[in-house]
Design a protein around this nucleic acid. Structure first.
Length: 782
DNA sequence: ATGGCCCCTG
DNA sequence: CAGGGGCCAT
């Protein structure tokens, strides 16, 4: 996984160390492998915090008297960590051999762990830190004394022993505290939700920092050591490792016998040293020594192995602790910086970075991740805060959108299609057959024919000006139909003409009717608003994108050989009506968004339908897809499943979806043929009623001009919003179907139960290619 | 047996 | 427009 930790090479070992894997190699005995050429008492690579994270872990062999509690918590370490550590500090290992290092490790552990405790624990922890610091000071003083004692052996044996005992007591106390903290941590982890955890972590972190600062007041060298590693990440990493090794108990496991001896010796010395006062001089000496611990600890530690190895180890451990504390902080800061930089560069949800953060307070995983979380508490917090902010913003936006969409749902319903159909049907029954059926009457054809050429010339798409340059042209464009002429001869002029007038002119089109599906509408509204909010600011920059996503495909489409330019460019639509423009923009935005994976996307539609989808493709079909399918029906009445897949790239096709879409087209055809049959029968009746030779005006009458009722009905059904120009090809095919039906009815073939199949075959062959614009996801037009 | 289509119904 | 039944081809 790509995490900022990868950028920080020195940190990676620790990350691995936190891995929950426990292998037999973690056993104490395995740690000292001859191949490594390391001393047998080489400390294991147990992460400092590991045992904290695994409270229930199987206790290992007791690691000697010094760390009974710790050993109880001991858990198998991580082989990787061990390996990494093998390549590094040896002095640490030796120092760990001395049990005194455990305390230091515990402190570090606490420092890390404190981030997982709640505020109260944090306070407690601060106290602990102070206490440990004091212990450090004391031990330092003792160390100094010990060094001096090395020179003047004769004195202070008893004092030493006393010191040791004190140290031991303190250590025990620290361990107890640690245990308590650990328990609290577990409880907190189990009970608190993530938000609380994060908040508390922040508080804890603050407190920890404060505690550290306070500690600095006592131990000035901490600051200095921090400075040491300010520029040296490697050193910091080493220090981190050392810290972890301090916690590890394996040295005790491996050499518990030796430790016992040492412990006894220590106690003896402690008792000895008790009598000796702590000299400030020695303290300073020790401090000075620790100042150099970054690089010289080794020698110091080597000295520690000797008679006073415990003391030296203690000193070393303390120094290490100090440096580790600061180094860890540095590491964290550095990682944080790196991480924040990364996140800054990828503001839109850096998955990798986020993934590395255990954002979800998982129980088990959270524990294991917890260590690293602790180390990276700061980064994590920042990241989480960022994420939270992002989420909060998104949620806010979603809520807003939902609200808006809910408001949008309350849009007034618009004229329903059944009304038109019903009107046409009533017209059909009207006594004036000529009016009701423009296809039949000679006067109708006479009127229609002359009007047609002019109508075709008026197609707005043909002389379409550059989208943005000539908005004024739009109003006249969409519907070439001439209202007066149509009304003059159109059947049921009163009702149908009014209705026909209402649908053709897009310039001030009535608000599109809300789709019958409330849920999709909701999604749509949200999506639409989302798109709008996202891209409205981009409107000034639209020209290029518009060209990429809209104009080009539609120009292609317009120049399609099989069809006249029937799809007005979206920019034009935008000028036609703000609402249409909005739809167009939404659709375009959607299309753009759909191309990307993972983005919120959905089918946005003219009638306002969008689906929020999680993946790159949509599981279900949205009203937008239905609309698109209807528009596609203008070109293909019998699309294959492959065709559908080609033109619905944003749909994740499965059996259900495919069958549903096939069913759509089946329904489209059904409606289409029903209308054809109906008008064909009407024409037949009219022709019969005319008493004249039906052939006379049949060819001219059986046509589907843009000014005919049949056209209006079809347009209403497949292009309800009338945003698209119905392809001329579709009109031609409609005429073919109408004539076929008329012919079949006229000749009485309709008596055959399968008489329609022949017509179906004919129409099936008349499918024309779908414009490439439909290959884009979403609706080609709002 | 399966899938596609048509037809009918709600 | 969806669902169910029937038919037909594979």
């Amino acid at each position: 996984m790509d995490s900022p930790t990868d950028l920080f090479n020195d940190s990676s070992p620790q990350i691995r160390a936190f891995a929950p894997t426990h292998s037999s190699t973690d056993l104490p005995g395995v740690h000292s492998q001859p191949s490594t050429g390391r001393p047998a008492f080489r400390p294991p690579g147990f992460p400092l915090i590991h045992h904290l994270l695994q409270p229930g872990g199987a206790p290992r062999r007791l690691g000697g008297q010094l760390n009974p509690n710790l050993s109880a918590h001991r858990h198998l370490g991580d082989t990787d960590l061990e390996e990494d550590r093998e390549e590094r500090d040896e002095h640490v290992e030796q120092d760990i051999e001395d049990g005194d290092g455990v305390m230091e490790g515990e402190e570090s552990l606490l420092m890390v762990k404190k981030r997982h405790t709640d505020a109260a624990l944090a306070a407690e922890w601060s106290q602990d830190v102070l206490k440990v610091k004091r212990m450090k000071l004391e031990s330092r003083a003792r160390d100094g004394e010990a060094e001096e004692g090395g020179r003047r052996r004769e004195g202070g044996r008893e004092g030493k022993r006393r010191e040791r005992e004190e140290l031991k007591e303190q250590l025990e106390e620290a361990r107890e505290r640690l245990q308590a903290l650990q328990e609290k941590v577990w409880r907190a982890f189990g009970e608190k939700n993530m938000a609380e955890e994060e908040r508390k972590k922040r508080n804890r972190y603050k407190e920890g920092r404060e505690g550290r600062r306070r500690g600095v007041g006592l131990l000035g060298e901490e600051e200095i050591t921090e400075g040491l590693y300010d520029e040296e990440d490697i050193d910091g990493g080493e220090m981190e490792k050392e810290t972890f090794s301090f916690l590890s108990v394996s040295p005790f496991d491996s050499f518990h016998r030796r430790k016992e001896e040492k412990q006894k010796d220590k106690e003896r010395r402690m008792e000895r040293g008790r009598g000796d006062g702590l000299h400030f001089e020695s303290v300073m000496e020790g401090a000075g020594l620790w100042l150099d611990c970054g690089g010289l600890i080794r020698g110091d530690w080597q000295g520690g192995i000797e008679e006073e190895g415990e003391e030296g180890g203690q000193k070393f451990a303390q120094a290490l602790k100090l440096e580790l504390g600061s180094a860890v902080a540095r590491v964290i800061d550095r990682v944080l910086r790196l991480y924040t930089e990364m996140t800054d560069f990828t503001p839109s949800s850096p998955p990798a970075a986020i993934s590395f953060l255990p954002s979800d307070g998982g129980t088990d995983g959270g524990r294991e991740r917890g260590e690293w979380m602790g180390l990276l508490a700061r980064e994590e917090e920042k990241m989480r805060r960022k994420e939270e902010e992002k989420r909060g913003e998104q949620d806010e936006e979603k809520e807003k959108q939902l609200q808006k969409s809910s408001n949008g749902n309350s849009l007034p319903p618009h004229r329903s299609e059944p009304t038109d159909l019903g009107m046409s049907l009533t017209v059909q029954r009207s006594p004036d057959i000529r009016k009701a059926h423009p296809l039949l009457g000679p006067p109708l054809s006479a009127h229609l024919n002359p009007s047609h050429p002019s109508l075709s010339l008026h197609h707005p798409s043909l002389p379409r000006p550059p989208p943005l340059s000539h908005p004024p042209l739009l109003p006249s464009a969409p519907q070439p139909k001439d209202p007066p002429s149509s009304t003059s001869f159109h059947p049921s002029s009163s009702s149908s003409s009014s209705s026909s007038n209402s649908f053709p002119p897009p310039p001030p089109p009535p608000p599109p009717p809300p789709p019958p599906l409330p849920l999709p509408l909701l999604h749509y509204s949200m999506q639409q608003l989302f798109s709008r909010s996202l891209h409205h600011p981009q409107l000034p920059h639209l020209p290029p994108s518009r060209k990429d996503y809209l104009s080009d495909p539609f120009l292609e489409f317009s120049s399609h050989p099989s069809s006249h330019p029937s799809f007005p460019p979206l920019p034009l639509l935008g000028h036609l009506d703000p609402s249409l423009a909005r739809h167009a923009h939404a659709g375009r935005d959607r299309e753009r968004g759909m191309r990307g994976d993972g983005g919120i996307r959905g089918g946005g539609g003219l009638d306002g339908e969008l689906y929020l989808t999680a993946g790159g493709t949509q599981e279900g079909l949205s009203p937008c897809h239905l609309k698109k399918a209807k528009l596609m029906f203008f070109y293909t009445r019998y699309p294959s499943s492959n065709t559908l897949k080609t033109y619905f790239p944003d749909v994740k096709f499965n059996r259900c979806v495919t069958s549903q879409m096939i069913k759509w087209f089946s329904n489209f055809r059904e409606f289409f043929y029903i209308q054809m049959e109906r008008f064909a029968r009407q024409a037949v009746r009219e022709a019969l009623n005319r008493e004249g030779p039906p052939r006379l005006g049949r060819e001219s009458q059986l046509r589907v001009g843009r000014d005919t009722e049949l056209y209006r009905i079809l347009n209403m059904h497949y292009n309800k919003s009338n945003v698209y120009q119905v392809p001329e090809r579709f009109i031609e095919i409609s005429e073919v179907a109408l004539r076929e039906f008329y012919s079949a009815i006229w000749t009485g073939r309709d008596s055959d139960p399968c008489w329609k199949k022949g017509i179906y075959k004919i129409i099936c062959k008349l499918d024309s290619p779908v414009p490439d614009a439909f290959r884009l996801p979403g609706c080609p037009v709002g």
